[in-house]
């Protein structure tokens, strides 16, 4: 029997929390980048500038919502929604604390993978519907990158699934009470995190948006709130990536003294900051280098990792 009020409350908290956090991240990233880059960053609105996102939101909502006359209008409009919807849907299976989850699906891992695959469509049809060469090239690069890294992402987290013996994310977290999966699954963690960066279009895998040569890649033609949706979608996937890394490899809500939710949020924040720090530090790969890196380095490692883990699990089961 489903407890409707509890579910509705959880949905509300997770949805509100994720969106607020995504909005806040816009400020956090700019401020952190600013501090690391010997400048201030946004520091005027509210304490430390934390209301900057609010001002950005007001601005971006009231901007002219321009659709290029050469674009395919219907598809062009739908695309930004896909980004946000797929990212938010994934949060449905994210267990933040024991029984603090919207839907404790028994194949939560697969649901998460399916949603991140769907997100790739936004990039593909967004670039295509824009009918502009810069967007088109950006979207071609994005397709190649997303499809490749989709494969590695699935493969590299299978080790964790094997060890836990379940596709259910809560079960995976519970299986890490003694030791976090990052220890036996270090290769899996590296592969998953890299693939996740690529899925979220973050440096050094931000090829689809390659700021300098392709203007802004597949979303070059988007403006106003449609651009804002892409922006929020990117931050949502950063949060999602951090949350999933914590769940799959860093013991989820487990930790001493503090309540589970606090542990979860702390661990997740650490990864968010790490992702921003990577952006502040590294240049980006070239498109073909990125693909060869994926297929020639990440792919074999993920396969070996899976093979060895499977062997160990079988041997232990006797």
């Amino acid at each position: 029997m489903i407890d409707w009020s509890h579910t509705a409350l959880t949905i509300g908290v997770i949805l509100g929390g994720a969106l607020t956090l995504a909005g806040l991240l816009i400020w956090v990233e700019r401020r952190l980048l600013g501090i690391w880059q010997e400048r201030y960053g946004p520091n005027r609105l509210g304490p430390g500038g934390c209301l900057q996102s609010l001002a950005d939101m007001i601005k971006i909502f009231t901007k002219e919502d321009w659709i290029p006359p050469f674009a395919d209008k219907a598809v062009f409009v739908i695309t930004p929604a896909i980004v946000v919807i797929t990212a938010l849907m994934s949060f449905a299976v994210v267990p933040i604390a024991p029984s603090f989850v919207v839907s404790d699906l028994n194949m939560g891992v697969l649901f998460f993978l399916a949603m991140s695959s769907l997100a790739a469509y936004s990039v593909i049809i967004g670039g295509w519907a824009s009918n502009s060469k810069f967007a088109f090239l950006g979207s071609l690069r994005a397709i190649a990158q997303l499809l490749s890294y989709e494969v590695f992402m699935g493969l590299s987290l299978m080790g964790a699934v094997l060890l836990a013996g379940s596709f259910n994310l809560s079960d995976i977290v519970d299986a890490q009470q003694q030791v976090w999966f990052v220890v036996p699954q270090f290769l899996g963690f590296l592969g998953f995190f890299m693939a996740g960066l690529a899925e979220a279009h973050r440096t050094p895998f931000d090829m689809p948006e390659a700021e300098a040569e392709l203007v802004a890649g597949y979303h070059s033609e988007y403006s106003g709130m449609k651009f804002g949706m892409f922006f929020v979608g990117e931050y949502l996937s950063v949060i999602l990536l951090s949350a999933m890394t914590v769940i799959l490899f860093f013991g989820g809500w487990h930790g001493p003294w503090l309540p589970p939710v606090v542990w979860f949020v702390l661990k997740m924040s650490a990864f968010i900051v790490l992702i921003i720090l990577i952006r502040a530090t590294w240049p980006r790969f070239r498109f073909d280098q990125l693909l060869s890196f994926g297929w020639k380095v990440v792919m074999p490692l993920a396969l070996i990792n899976l093979l060895v883990t499977g062997g160990v699990v079988l041997w232990k089961a006797g």
Binding site: L33, W36, Q37, E38, R39, T203, P204, D206, A210, E211, A212, R279, A280, T281, W282, P283, R284, F285
Partner: peptide
């Protein structure tokens, strides 16, 4: 140049 190949931060240090 660093920015052209995607590194965000160096340009700020160097302008300082």
């Amino acid at each position: 140049f660093a920015q052209d190949v995607g590194a965000l931060s160096p340009v700020f240090y160097m302008f300082n």
